[in-house]
Write a protein that binds this DNA or RNA. Structure first.
Lengths: 334, 334
DNA sequence: ATGAAAGCGCTAACAA
DNA sequence: TTGTTAGCGCTTTCAT
């Protein structure tokens, strides 16, 4: 089944059918209706390959990410894919987890074979070669969560976010606050542990606290658990913990319990993310709306495809969500 | 840049370049090497659209799933996409979450526009129309986790898996075992809560226990938490709980703790899945390897594309993983 | 082993 | 508004 068949059935030329189906170029309402009806009747759908070859448009956006099974990434992906679908775009998934050879393949072969109109890169630290390869496509490129040199990027103000939660703890009266940060491995990938730590330290500097206790972990629940055990096991344990991610904060909450400490009475705990489970755990955190981030990235990409100007760097919104894991320090008890 | 340019540079015809690059048809090793070198030098990659139009092959598989942000689905997706990438295939993602209109669009427009060579449907209960639409493509179709009428399907023997964990609890000496199952909503989507409950009841029947306590939840941690509170709040609480998923089992473990009960001393808890967090929680469970399921689905799809025979229904492997959440009932204490 | 040439199914410039 | 027609870049048959 092809466009000629529909054209023949309706008694018009294939060009008219093409125009009616794509909405480009003018067709009389009556003809358009007849074409659409004929197509619907026969279950005819335009062949993407032929359309692409002739027009250069793919109606397809590639999304590149380092993991699929972590909360943040699946959220961004879900948000982006939903927006793209509504705009009639397919999404092709490039998952970089696995060894480096696969990563190279993606940049050398998969992306360049002209299947996509644009690329969204999520939390990707690209090396020079990779950057060149993407730039060489000469197609819209948007980064989410990680800075991409020379491309519009959506990113959280990690310093500001960390400063905000830390400020919340300080406002409650805490001065002895520990931080569970990201280890080197996670810093390479996401580049944000350092910034969150910075915001944490900035907020404390303001009240004259220097070099507070910082323990690094790997952004997982077990990692947060281990770090919190270290922190809470010390003789003069802090009255609050700020973890650089909600998952580590969950681990910290579990560790506190296992040590016989009650949250928030004995220790206040806060995180960053507003993970799906945070409400359940009553975790005070910074919400960063990753689904909206995905959707926003799509807006930029589509605007770019239409030739509109696209802002270089956009700071993403975030907000403090106070739940039951933080309270005033129980000074009497100490 | 196109194939003619490479052909000209090497001094052969475009047909030879095509053969050298695709590996179809014979080319002398020497010519092939020169073609590959010329392509590499210039960063030339075959245009997928043109290739597809001429050959009918897309090198692309569509994966349809109901959620992206749940553990099971992201695991299956990650497994499938990795295998496909290794075989040189792209993956196009069709996520059905959201309202029905989007779901209809996927089946009416997105999938039929001939971008994919095959479709993998994960845990989807398709209605007749949708089934017709997929069948009409006349392309390989494989179902994972949910039965698709008339297509090869990979599924866990849910009855057997549930019977196995329950048997483990029985072997430890438990006779008073409660079950956290799936509510109606999850039964429609996954069709597995009923089977898991069946396996649970079968195992108990064998030792003469009829109509045991069953509470339904929604396959989430909070759902499991609430259900377990109900179960453990009764005067003669059971000595063990079998939850139909690990996430619900996590909720049950948290509920037990909040009630002042110790796991496994006061109550044994087991689940099904072997979720990433299960090891951390020490949860006894049934491992079902969703990544391998995704990879296996790809094997079937690729075999089908090559014209090999494909088994209709395949039972997936599963195994009991005993950790620290289950032990013998403490009969002395009661 | 290689080349010539006919499509694959659509879009878009141009003409009417 | 509609039709004619020349590609888009590759694959594949058929020769050689």
């Amino acid at each position: 089944m092809n466009i000629a068949e529909i054209a023949h059935a309706v008694g018009v030329s294939s060009a008219t059918v093409s125009r009616a189906l794509s909405g480009r170029g003018s067709v009389s309402p009556k003809t358009r209706e007849r074409v659409l009806a004929a197509a619907r009747e026969r279950g005819y759908v335009v062949s993407q390959a032929a359309s692409t070859l002739a027009s250069g448009r793919n109606r397809n956006v590639g999304i590149v990410l380092p993991f699929l099974d972590r909360w943040f990434f699946s959220q961004v992906l879900a948000g982006a894919q939903q927006s793209l679908m509504r705009a009639g775009y397919d999404v092709t998934l490039y998952n970089l987890e696995g060894d480096g050879s696969e990563r190279r393949e993606v940049f050398e072969t998969f992306i360049p074979r002209q299947r996509v109109d644009a690329v969204i890169a999520v939390s990707l630290e690209l090396d020079d070669t990779e950057l060149q390869q993407l730039k060489a496509l000469d197609k819209p490129l948007v980064g989410v969560g990680g800075p991409i040199v020379g491309a519009p990027t959506l990113a959280l103000d990690d310093v500001g976010a960390a400063r905000l939660v830390t400020g919340h703890l300080i406002a409650l009266g805490h001065t002895s606050i520990a931080h569970i940060g990201g280890d080197e491995a996670s810093d390479v990938d996401f580049h944000l542990p350092t910034k969150r730590r910075q915001g944490f330290e900035d907020a404390l500097e303001e009240i004259g606290v220097h070099a507070p206790l910082v323990v690094d972990a790997d952004f997982t629940v077990p990692g947060g658990y281990r770090a919190a055990k270290q922190i809470l096991g010390t003789p003069d344990r802090p009255t609050a913990i700020f973890a650089a991610s909600d998952e580590m904060a969950f681990g910290a909450m579990l560790a506190a319990r296992d040590l016989g400490l009650e949250v928030p009475r004995d220790v206040s705990i806060a995180g960053i993310d507003d993970h799906d489970m945070s409400d359940f755990y009553g975790l005070t955190t910074i919400a960063q709306f990753p689904r909206s981030q995905g959707a926003l990235a799509v807006d930029l990409v589509l605007a770019d495809l239409e030739g509109s100007a696209v802002p270089t760097d956009t700071d993403l919104p975030f907000e403090l969500v106070v739940r039951s894991s933080t309270t005033r320090p129980d000074t009497a008890a100490r």
